[in-house]
Design a protein around this nucleic acid. Structure first.
Lengths: 230, 230
DNA sequence: CATTTTGAATACTGACTAGTAGATTTATCA
DNA sequence: TGATAAATCTACTAGTCAGTATTCAAAATG
């Protein structure tokens, strides 16, 4: 994960300080590089999403950018590197979302709603990335694959912890916490399958409603035989 | 969909009744054909599941069978036909499950549990098929793709109808029925992602617990202010 | 046992595409 | 402006793989 800026295009960095403004120049070059990398990634995401990784040639990606194939090779070592970059971006997005949420506070119920809501939003806002990495998992190098597994494990673990906290506080009633965490992950992971932009619901509405459903799945149900609680 | 027996290997069916037992002979031949087709499909499912469709060559499939590529072409017109057959089998399985369930009766809650339970079982029992068809959707010919979409729509529609019935009867309380149906479909569709054979749970246990969760997601929560119902 | 039919294998083609070497253009800077 | 370096392109190679024409083998048939 780390930095991922990886500015490849600098085989020989001649006289580093040949002019007073070489620092600015350097950073300008890096910015331009980064911009180009971004454009490549974005075109690739679009095509991989629609046609699949194997079904897309680098010539097509280059054409979509109005460039030619060697242009891509200036910035990525191989087609697989490009895929790995896409997947690692998707993971970074997801991790960001998760970290943002962990710093929040509130009741387990509030936290769960927020996590489901935000995660679904993150997945929908990076729909193509998310779909690509779940679809092309087999194409990835083992190392990158492991990153994805790790992220899923993280998510499940944190949800499990949250569910247990909720149970301890009497807010949740759940027979099998791990299965419940999988059910919740399912709602998040499956969202791109059914959500259609421009449909009946906005992303925010969809996320809100799913979050409400997730909550009602685990929230304690007070039966009529019990008195009111708290 | 239809029959799908499609016995290709019979370009010229010479003197149909050349012997008194030609009927038996014919059916024997068909059985043998069918058996071989099944073996091919099964080897392909295994490899496509592990390596992806594009990442698997027909030579590999043939090798797994101890045969060579032209053997496959005797029974399937193209690699894509083979994929389509796999997907259509997955769909048939799913449709069978759905139809079996529709003939059952009981309260909406019972029906919903049964549907979720059986569908998850069906998906898990044909895990490779299910994964392949959801992963390789982009590789399919439009016609086959449409079949899959249709199946999903069917599933959603029937679940929606069931949820509405439940609401009418006062058993369910759901803010947005369509989103709820998507949530339920998510649990079914995502099951192969997390379920590991030989893990903590059997398929049946996993299916049971998911079904219980789905039910608790939509079941009416009697607040303490209401009296017991019915 | 000769003959036809069917099933499968060998050995090929043709298309495609990831990746690259070298030419060429464009930017940089003295 | 002329020299140098970077960015991009043209044109190619090498390998892969779906699909096939042809040959060989083995049943079935009479």
């Amino acid at each position: 994960m780390a930095d991922s800026v990886q500015r490849k295009p600098r085989a020989r960095r001649a006289a580093e300080d040949s002019s007073p403004r070489s620092g600015e120049r350097e950073s300008m070059r890096d910015l331009v590089s980064q911009l180009k990398r971004d454009r490549i990634v974005s075109a690739a995401v679009d095509l991989f999403y629609r046609q699949g990784y194997a079904g897309t040639t680098l010539d097509e990606v280059a054409k979509a950018l109005g460039m030619t194939k060697p242009f891509i090779y200036q910035y990525f070592g191989s087609k697989n590197d490009l895929l790995a970059e896409i997947c690692s971006r998707a993971i970074r997005h997801a991790n960001d979302a998760l970290n943002r949420l962990l710093s929040q506070q509130g009741s387990p119920g509030d936290k769960l709603s927020a996590i489901v809501r935000e995660f679904i939003l993150s997945v929908l806002n990076n729909q193509a990335n998310a779909v690509i990495y779940s679809r092309e998992e087999t194409e990835l190098a083992p190392k990158d694959r492991e990153m994805i597994r790790q992220l899923r494990r993280d998510f499940d673990r944190r949800v499990v912890a949250l569910l247990e906290e909720g149970i301890a506080r009497g807010e949740f009633a759940i027979a099998d916490v791990r299965v419940a965490s999988f059910a919740i992950a399912s709602m998040v992971g499956w969202a791109p399958v059914w959500f259609r932009a421009g449909g009946r619901l906005t992303k925010e509405e969809a996320a809100d409603r799913m979050a409400a459903l997730a909550l009602s799945m685990v929230a304690v149900k007070r039966t009529a035989t019990e008195g009111p609680r708290a």
